[in-house]
Amino acid sequence: MSQLLSAFGIDWHLLLAQAVNFGIVLIALWYFLYKPVLAMLAKRQELVAKGVEDAGRASEMLAGADSEANSRITAAEGEAEGIVAAARETATAEKTRLLQEAEERAAAVARDAEARAAETAAKAKRESEREVARLAILAVEKILKKNYD
């Protein structure tokens, strides 16, 4: 056994030294290479996942915004229709009121004219009656004068 060991140059000092060498390589590579590279991979994976999530959220928000805009447009259209209908109604009412007022005023004017005509006729009648009476008196006077003269 010892011959075999010496033929291959086995020496516990060297065995230990090579084991320590490997240990140093393992620790150094772990610290300087594996850890940062794996951390970088994890970071990138996280970023990609976040990007995908953000994109999903953005498209969701876009869809939300679309439906919001649609509902607002629908509401605005409804409101506009309401406003137009109300305006039309108001206009109709106003028209009716104005017509009625105009009719009333025309009737009043007609009534007024009628009254004035009646008054004028009555006045004329009274004046002619007075004239007739005066003429009658005058005629009577003339007759009487003639008779007494």
């Binding site: 060297l14 030294a17 090579q18 060498n21 140093i24 390589v25 150094a28 590579l29 300087f32 290479l33 850890k35 940062p36 590279v37 970088m40």
Partner: peptide, 23 residues
């Protein structure tokens, strides 16, 4: 062989050090 092990260690660790910092 011990000297070459040290040489290879230096190469590997040196590479790892500079590579790890330039990620």
């Amino acid at each position: 062989s011990l000297i070459m092990a040290w040489l290879v260690m230096a190469l590997l660790i040196g590479f790892a050090y500079f590579f790890g910092r330039s990620l």
